[in-house]
């Protein structure tokens, strides 16, 4: 299926998402903080990255910004998944180029549907990607 990187500092959530996505047939790698996330991003290719916002070493916005400013990784779908409900932060995430925002507590079904949509959009052509700023 597809390669997904899950970045999350809460151990329980990290394992839970990993298990759910694996069951759905995805290849899942995990990172528990910003530092590990950057390493994983440098070493591998992913179709979708799911990231938390507040975590050690680097925040989720930095992850989004790094992905979007790197021409080879620009196409990667990014879903921000955080408990932060503050409107400004959410807008900030979208402005930086996040594709989706899920507020914790999340619905597992919803997450899977959004991933599928994101993947479908992506495969329907690189045009979509270039349209994004």
């Amino acid at each position: 299926m597809s390669n997904i990187l899950v970045i999350e500092d809460d151990d329980i959530m990290l394992k839970a998402i990993r298990n759910i996505l694996r069951k759905d047939g995805h290849e899942v790698l995990t990172a528990k903080d910003g530092k590990e996330a950057f390493e994983r991003l440098d070493n591998d290719e992913y179709d979708v990255v799911i990231t938390d916002l507040m975590m050690p070493y680097a925040n989720g916005l930095e992850v989004v910004s790094r992905l979007r400013s790197n021409p080879t990784k620009r196409h990667v779908g990014v879903i921000v998944c955080s408990s932060v409900g503050n409107e400004e932060t959410i807008t900030e995430a979208f402005r930086l180029g996040a594709d989706d925002y899920l507020k914790k507590p999340i619905m597992a079904g919803e997450l899977m549907i959004r991933i599928r949509k994101l993947l479908a959009n992506r495969s329907s052509g690189a045009k979509l990607v270039t349209k994004k700023k």
Binding site: I12, M13, A16, K104, P105, I106, M107, A108, G109
Partner: peptide, 15 residues
Amino acid sequence: ETLVQYRKNFRGEVG
């Protein structure tokens, strides 16, 4: 305590 922790992260069917 673990269940409470999970509930903080999941709602919907899983919740």
